[in-house]
């Protein structure tokens, strides 16, 4: 299957991105003990491209994007972000993490800090920006996700949807080139999913490079440039949303889609 999928990747990569590729993964393997979570993953994400990763639970979707900012260490192969290779050198890790923002399923906001302090923490301590301008930048991002009125509150006082939007603002404030979303709506009550997807849609429209792990097929169909289907730690198929939702080639893909649609 390798030759077939790489063909698909190559074809779609040109279709989605402009200019130099933002993220390149080449033959990446990842093991958890004796369990292989990622098997020979190769994918390229172009500039301003939105890639949605779907697949059954335990298929390695989250592991894939967590390897990109080194929350997990890959065991084999290469990962390049913005031309920098991810190595054991802590400086390469930190250089890449500065380019990559991430939004988590469980928000992971800092409960002891206000919304505003959550966002300025990275600005002040990583980007070394003075207090005043950092707060202005933070407010700008809060306006962008339409939650500026809650700036002085603590995360525990917000609803799940609001918290996730704060998390998006926190990642955006660092002005990353790439945004990773790890099932951003899975922990939310149904009525709050929309406001988060709205913020993500706006972000995609502004030309951000994004990799999104999600089960929101509507979002995938509407926003994605490409959809990646994973199963058992492998990339099974890559294609445009149209290709996927009108009749994928692989039986496994069709079976998965029929189960969730």
């Amino acid at each position: 299957m390798t030759s077939e999928t790489t063909d698909l990747i190559a074809g779609a990569a040109v279709a989605g991105g402009t200019g130099e590729p933002k993220i390149v993964m080449e033959h990446v393997d990842k093991w958890f003990g004796s369990f292989q979570a990622l098997k020979d993953i190769s994918i390229t994400v172009g500039n301003q491209e939105v890639v949605v990763v779907i697949g059954p639970s335990g298929s390695g979707k989250s592991t894939l994007i967590r390897c990109i900012n080194r929350l997990e260490t890959h065991d084999k192969g290469r990962i390049l972000v913005g031309g920098t290779e991810l190595t054991r050198d802590p400086r390469s890790v930190s250089a890449i993490r500065k380019q990559v923002g991430m939004v988590f399923q469980q928000f992971n906001l800092f409960p002891h800090l206000t919304v505003l302090d959550n966002i300025t923490l990275g600005l002040r301590n990583v980007r070394r920006i003075a207090k005043k301008p950092a707060e202005e930048m933070a407010m700008k991002q809060l306006v962008r996700v339409q939650i500026e009125s809650q700036a002085k509150k603590y995360p525990g006082q917000l609803s799940g949807g609001q918290q996730q939007r704060v998390a998006i603002a926190r990642a955006l404030a660092m002005e990353p080139d790439v945004m990773l979303f790890d099932e951003p709506t899975s922990a939310l009550d149904p009525e709050m999913v929309k406001e988060v997807l709205e913020a993500m849609r706006e972000l995609a429209g502004s030309g951000m490079t994004m990799i999104v792990v999600t089960h929101e097929m509507g979002f995938a169909r509407e926003v994605a440039d490409r959809v990646v289907f994973m199963a058992d730690g492998q990339i099974v198929e890559v294609g445009t949303p149209d290709y996927f939702f009108t009749g994928a080639r692989e039986a496994r893909t069709r079976k998965f889609l029929s189960q969730i649609l």
Binding site: L71, R97, V100, N108, L109, F110, G122, V126, A171
Partner: peptide
């Protein structure tokens, strides 16, 4: 653990 991951994703030392 998510707190640490959030810090890592922000490149905090």
């Amino acid at each position: 653990k998510g707190q640490l991951e959030a810090c890592q994703s922000l490149a905090l030392g």
